[in-house]
Design a protein around this nucleic acid. Structure first.
Length: 287
DNA sequence: GAGTCGATTTGCT
DNA sequence: GCAAATCGACTCG
C-alpha cells in the first residue's frame, strides 16, 4: 500500500506544481512584471482596494510594494509576525505566521549569494525590485525562499513559520517529498521549521523565482492580526554559513523569542539579546 | 538531546 | 570539479 500511496501523493504534488498559476505563463519562465490580478485573487485585494477599510474584522491586509522597500535588516525584523499566504491551484489557502528570518545585506555581505557584486542568472531576483522572490535550489533537492529588499543584492530569507491554516495539506506536501518514512505523521512543529521545510509545506519551488510578492495571485503576505503586541525578537548569527569570516558572526538572523516554531534556537544569543519588543536589534544600521 | 553523516544536483569557478 | 543559506536518519549517552 505504501508504494501506491506514495506514488499517488507524488503525482498529486507534481500536478500541483505543474498546474500552478492558471492563466499566467507557465514553464517557470518568470515574468519580471507581475501577472495582473484576476479571478481567485484574495478578497483583500479589491480593484479599488481600500486596504484599511478592513479596520477590525478582516485581518487580511495584503502587504504592498512600499512595505518591502526597506533595508534588509529592517525588513527581516518587520516580517516577524506577518502572515505568508499560499493559494494553491484548487483554491486551498495555506497560511503561516513568520517567526524566523535572516537578512542578507548585499555585495559586502560575504555570506550572501550576491557577495562581491556577483550577479548570475540564479540570483537575479536579489537585484530586482523589493518584494521580488528569490527561490533557489540547495543541496540538489531543496528550495530556499527569499524576498528582495531595498538595496542591490539584498534580501531576506524566510526560515520558519507558525502554521496557521491548511495544516493537513502542508503535512501531505511535506510527507510526499520524504522517502522511506511514509508511515510516520509529521508533527505540526515539523511542518515549517526550516527554510526548505516551509517551501515544501507551501509548495514553493523554482517556478516562484522572481515573482512579485506584492502582486502575485498564488503567494502573498498579509499584515499580522496580532493586535498591539510586538513580538520580542532575538538577534542571532545566521545558520549554515560556516566560513564567511566576520559575516558569519553578525547577528543577522531574527526570531520570535520563545516561539516553538523556530528552526534553530540560540541560547547564547538570547542571553545577550535584551528582552522586549524589538529591543536592541535596531542598532545594526551599520549593515 | 546532541552529534554525525549521507543524499543529490545545480550553479559557479 | 566542487561547494552548497538543508534535511532526516541514525547513534550514543
Amino acid at each position: 500500500m505504501h508504494e501506491a500511496q506514495l506514488s499517488r501523493r507524488l503525482g498529486q504534488k507534481k500536478r500541483l506544481l505543474e498546474a500552478e498559476e492558471p492563466g499566467s505563463d507557465l514553464h517557470g519562465a518568470p515574468t519580471p512584471s507581475p501577472t495582473e490580478p484576476r479571478l481567485g485573487r484574495p478578497a483583500s485585494l479589491g480593484p479599488q482596494r481600500s486596504l484599511y477599510f478592513s479596520s477590525s474584522k478582516s485581518c487580511s491586509a495584503r502587504l504592498g510594494s512600499e512595505f518591502f522597500d526597506q533595508p534588509a535588516v529592517a525588513l527581516a525584523q518587520a516580517f516577524l509576525g506577518q502572515v505568508l499566504v499560499r493559494r494553491l491551484d484548487d483554491g486551498t489557502e495555506l497560511r503561516g505566521r513568520i517567526v524566523e528570518t535572516e537578512a542578507y545585506v548585499g555585495p559586502e555581505d560575504e555570506a550572501a549569494h550576491s557577495r562581491g557584486g556577483r550577479q548570475t542568472p540564479r540570483n537575479r531576483g536579489m537585484f530586482m525590485k523589493p518584494g521580488t522572490l528569490y527561490v533557489y535550489v540547495i543541496y540538489g533537492m531543496y528550495f530556499c525562499m527569499n524576498v528582495s529588499s531595498r538595496g542591490d543584492g539584498a534580501c531576506v530569507l524566510l526560515r520558519a513559520l507558525e502554521p496557521l491554516g491548511g495544516l493537513e495539506t502542508m503535512r501531505q506536501l511535506r510527507s510526499a517529498l520524504r522517502k522511506g518514512t511514509a508511515g510516520r505523521a509529521l508533527k505540526d512543529r515539523e511542518l515549517c521549521s526550516g527554510p526548505s521545510k516551509l517551501c515544501q509545506a507551501l509548495a514553493i519551488d523554482k517556478s516562484f523565482d522572481q515573482r512579485d510578492l506584492a502582486a502575485d495571485t498564488a503567494v502573498w503576505m498579509e499584515r499580522s492580526a496580532l493586535g498591539a503586541s510586538e513580538p520580542a525578537v532575538v538577534a542571532a548569527a545566521r545558520v549554515g554559513i560556516g566560513q564567511a569570516g566576520e559575516w558569519a558572526q553578525k547577528p543577522l538572523r531574527f526570531y520570535v523569542r520563545g516561539s516553538p516554531w523556530v528552526s534553530v534556537v540560540d541560547r547564547a544569543a538570547e542571553q545577550s539579546t535584551q528582552s522586549g519588543p524589538l529591543a536592541s536589534v535596531c542598532s545594526h544600521e551599520a549593515f
